[in-house]
């Protein structure tokens, strides 16, 4: 899912750290906000806002992290509200489609978590990481 193309320039140490932090932000948020999917999105959004005037490399990775959290937010939100209705609505109950969805959400989150860890490590080393779909999308949104 990830590619390692060359970036327009080689980022310095401080840039690499900040870019890596954008991914770490979503990692920390996953642990804190697992039942509340909005927390992950808010964390990466605030980090992006704080760094929106930063260098191209930092902005690029902040946007990629934000976009990936956005799609995860949609998937997790559906799971969250489905779970709430299973607990509180009498006409909703634990069913096979519900369990399959929860397991899918878990698989997708684990996959995303692994990708995020790899991206955080690589960008910390100053390497550029462009994810499949999210990379080109970020490229369209983020200009030097």
């Amino acid at each position: 899912m990830s590619m390692a193309p060359t970036f327009a320039y080689h980022p310095d140490e401080a840039e690499a750290e900040k870019a890596s932090n954008s991914y770490l932000m979503s990692l920390i948020a996953i642990m804190v906000g697992f039942p509340l999917p909005i927390i992950n999105l808010m964390a990466t959004l605030f980090f992006y806002i704080a760094n929106r005037k930063s260098t191209y490399f930092v902005r690029w990775h902040c946007i990629q992290a934000l976009l990936s959290q956005l799609s995860l937010f949609v998937i997790n939100t559906i799971g969250f509200w489905w779970t709430v209705s299973v607990f509180f609505r009498e006409d909703e109950h634990v069913s096979n489609p519900y369990l399959a969805y929860v397991i899918t959400v878990f698989v997708v989150n684990v996959f995303e978590l692994a990708l995020t860890i790899v991206a955080a490590i690589k960008t910390r080393k100053g390497q550029h990481v462009s994810w499949w779909f999210y990379g080109p999308l970020t490229q369209m949104m983020c200009k030097p």
Binding site: N96, L99, A100, I103, T104, V107, V108
Partner: peptide
């Protein structure tokens, strides 16, 4: 792919 994963997982009788 996401839909495919869901359909594949839902084939299992988790209940």
């Amino acid at each position: 792919m996401a839909a495919g994963i869901y359909l594949l997982i839902s084939r299992v009788d988790w209940m």
